[in-house]
Amino acid sequence: MTVRVENFGVPWESGYGYVQALQHGDTIYLSGQLANDGTELVSPASLDANGTPTDFSAMGDQMRRTYANAEELLKRFGASLGDVVEEVVYVLDVDAAMAVAGEVRRAAYGREDPQVASTILGVTRLAFPEQLVEIKFIAKLAGATAP
């Protein structure tokens, strides 16, 4: 079976060694997405002298951009967030995330009751110090065949 992949062309793809998205049959796997616009992080968190985030108020902005990046990748496969069956949301502060996640997710999925299995996990660190959230996705295409 042929596998199709997509990337954004950002340095950390080759630096870490991964693809942003991979289609295998009718399933699309998105690596953890973050709030980047090209190589720049959108709404980076403020850091203390040790490089630890001190302010989580940008959580909503980072989440919105993360969902937008996922949507962009899914479109390359003829899919959308409506095809997502599972997401895992990794955050540095669960309380800050829960305060905005409902509104952000409803807007991203375009419905009051997003039809997606979702898990949210608090973690101690993400790929970039100023990063507050990362989301991985799995989408299924109805009636799709291998690329």
Rank of each mutant, 00 (worst) to 15 (best):
G60E: 15
V104R: 02
G143C: 07
E103R: 07
L30V: 13
W12G: 04
A97Y: 11
L22F: 08
L22D: 07
A68Q: 03
G15I: 04
R4S: 15
T52Y: 00
E13V: 10
S118W: 03
E6C: 05
V3P: 11
D93S: 14
Q20I: 11
P114M: 12
A45P: 09
E134C: 08
S80H: 04
A108K: 06
L73A: 02
L34D: 09
Y90S: 08
F128Q: 05
I120R: 08
D95Q: 14
D83Y: 02
S80M: 07
V42G: 03
R125M: 04
K140P: 01
L41S: 04
V91P: 01
K136C: 14
E40Y: 05
D113A: 14
A127N: 09
E86H: 12
A142S: 14
Q62M: 08
L81C: 04
L73Y: 01
N50P: 01
K140N: 12
F128M: 10
V10S: 04
R106Y: 09
E72A: 08
V91W: 00
L73S: 01
A139Q: 05
T119S: 13
D83T: 06
E6Y: 12
Y90C: 01
V100M: 03
M98Y: 12
P44N: 03
Y109M: 13
D95V: 11
V19Q: 13
A127F: 05
G82M: 08
T2M: 13
H24I: 15
M1D: 14
E130R: 00
F77T: 08
R105V: 12
L74K: 02
T39G: 05
N36K: 13
V88G: 02
A49V: 01
F128G: 00
P114V: 08
S46G: 14
D93I: 06
D83C: 09
P53C: 05
L34V: 13
D113T: 14
G38H: 06
V100S: 07
L41E: 04
T124R: 06
I28V: 15
D95P: 02
A142M: 07
G78C: 06
L47M: 01
A117W: 05
E86Y: 12
I135K: 01
N7E: 10
M1A: 14
D113H: 12
L132C: 04
L22V: 15
Q20L: 12
I135Y: 02
V5R: 07
V89I: 14
Y16A: 14
G38N: 03
P147C: 09
L126N: 03
E103Y: 03
I28S: 05
N7C: 07
I138G: 03
